[in-house]
Amino acid sequence: MTEITFRQALQRGLREALDADPNVFLMGEDIGKYDGAYAVTQGLLEKYGPDRVRDTPISEAAFVGAGVGAAVAGLRPVVELMSMSFSLVASDQIVNMAAKIRYMSGGQLKVPLVLRAPTGGGVQLAATHSQSFENWYASVPGLKVVTPSTPYDALGLLRSSIEDDNPVVFAENALLYATRGDVPDGEYLVPIGVADVKRTGTDITLVGWAHGIVTLMAAAEKLAETGVSAEVVDLRSLRPLDMETVIESVEKTGRALVLDENWRTAGFGAELAAEIGYRSSDYLDGPVARVGGTDTPSPYSRPLEQLGIPQVAWVIDEIEKTYGI
């Protein structure tokens, strides 16, 4: 095991995939000569050359769509979007092309494409640069949506995403890039669609994904101080969704809280809460507790921005309010 950052884990995943399969290539805005806006692809142009590490014009619709085409022809493009917010410029290519082609062609074609993108807010980039949209893409049949929270998961899931024959939206919460964790020294995969219990407990199940796990782990720590034993379930991917692991945990603890850092209304947290309630109502001590981001665009001003982002205290308060513990 070696301790590395989330960013280094992604970079290692890209290197391993480039080394393993000549059909793998990268493209995106300023991923080469500039070394990547978030430095995930730093040094890769030098090592792999401009055929395999391609700088693109600022033309998201064109290069994401070209990724779909190259994937259909059997290559394995890994496309970086500089921000998930910019994926909207290419959303037609993602939703109407990447997600549909296999089905509409009666299975003749496959789209082994990975779309990597930084997500999330918290660093004063204001309303148009602080969004995630993994929620939205998770509602589209035909896409896989992967949302790692640790370096270990990021590396293993990225390798699985690149090996997958279907389009994967790979959400990288930018607040995680500098976080650290242990990864094995050898190559490994983390399967897509398998949730992970990040902390075991007996009194309540806390469900989340990506950066939300950082908040939930801190909340679990805090709850332990008052004698509440929380279990933290990291979904790791929103589609496919491993509901079994969630339900198993909820039926053990009898309580559930769902954290969705995106807008609370009509978000993925709502889907989870509904499904947990539907499947496990006989086991629950009360309604499924919910914490979500406020339903506002992300303001630039720091105190206002922080006010809209779910905090550990919100989780604690919501549990207290719902279950009285």
Binding site: Q124, A127, T128, Y300, S301
Partner: peptide
């Protein structure tokens, strides 16, 4: 500076 007397009350920031 993200302050209330900004043109957009600090909600837009330098890019907006």
């Amino acid at each position: 500076f993200g302050r209330i007397d900004g043109l957009s009350k600090g909600k837009g920031g330098s890019m907006h």
